[in-house]
């Protein structure tokens, strides 16, 4: 139980951000004319926040499945980079690995990429992922049911998601305190948005990975 309690504490910050975003998504589903429980189905089966927003727009416009598949590929292609750092080797067992990869959201990746997560057990990693899913599905469902209505004058709650990644980014930086790396990371991210807009995440990660490869090659050359 100790691991589960620790996981609840680890994932609390994500709960705050997920609540802000999830309620907003649920409210959108409610306004789209779909039955409220589709919000719950989207959130629990797809479990990919930004894709769910895109998908809602596509299905209400009756977009063909091919277009939906293309959108899923573009929006979620950034996930291919997560295998580099996510500690799946510590999650033993095929079923556990299946769940862990299914639930490998931005938030789950961000939480496990911090230095604090290096000693996490299999159970603690899985519990963190399950809590993140619980927060997301719960807040999306609440939003769709209209149970939690944000007053009309209150705007800007979505900043909670930005703040989550800022904070976890600072924690990831503290692991190495590699200042040039952080500066190039921010530069690539900004360049990605400026150059590629809708595909900004893939462009930004592509640029940054290219930089890391060159840097590794140069460092290797110096060592040789």
């Amino acid at each position: 139980m100790h691991d589960v309690r620790a996981a609840a504490r680890d994932s609390l910050a994500v709960g705050v951000a997920a609540a802000a975003m999830g309620v907003a998504f649920g409210v959108l589903v409610g306004q789209s004319g779909l039955a409220w429980w589709w919000a719950t189905v989207f959130a629990s089966v797809i479990f990919a926040g930004s894709l769910e927003f895109v998908l809602l727009g596509l299905v209400t416009a009756l977009a063909p499945l091919g277009q939906i598949a293309a959108a899923a590929l573009v929006v979620n292609s950034r996930h291919v980079f997560y295998a580099l750092s996510f500690p799946l080797h510590r999650v033993r067992g095929p079923l556990a690995k299946a769940y862990s990869t299914f639930a490998l959201t931005d938030e789950a990746y961000a939480l496990t990429a911090t230095p604090a997560a290096r000693g996490w057990s299999r159970r603690r990693i899985l519990a963190v992922q399950a809590f993140v899913q619980l927060y997301w599905v719960g807040s999306v469902t609440l939003g769709a049911l209209g149970g939690v209505l944000v007053p009309a004058g209150v705007v800007g709650l979505d900043f909670a998601v930005t703040a989550l990644f800022v904070v976890l980014g600072i924690d990831a930086f503290r692991a190495r305190r590699d200042v040039p790396n952080a500066l190039v990371a921010v530069g690539c991210a900004v360049l990605g948005v400026v150059l590629a807009d809708a595909r900004s995440m893939l462009a930004g990660m592509g640029l940054f990975t290219a930089y890391l490869l060159v840097r590794h090659a140069v460092a290797g050359g110096r060592r040789a």
Partner: peptide, 9 residues
């Protein structure tokens, strides 16, 4: 080294 880049992106 990628986590810092992913967060920035």
């Amino acid at each position: 080294t990628t986590p810092v880049g992913v967060m920035a992106v």
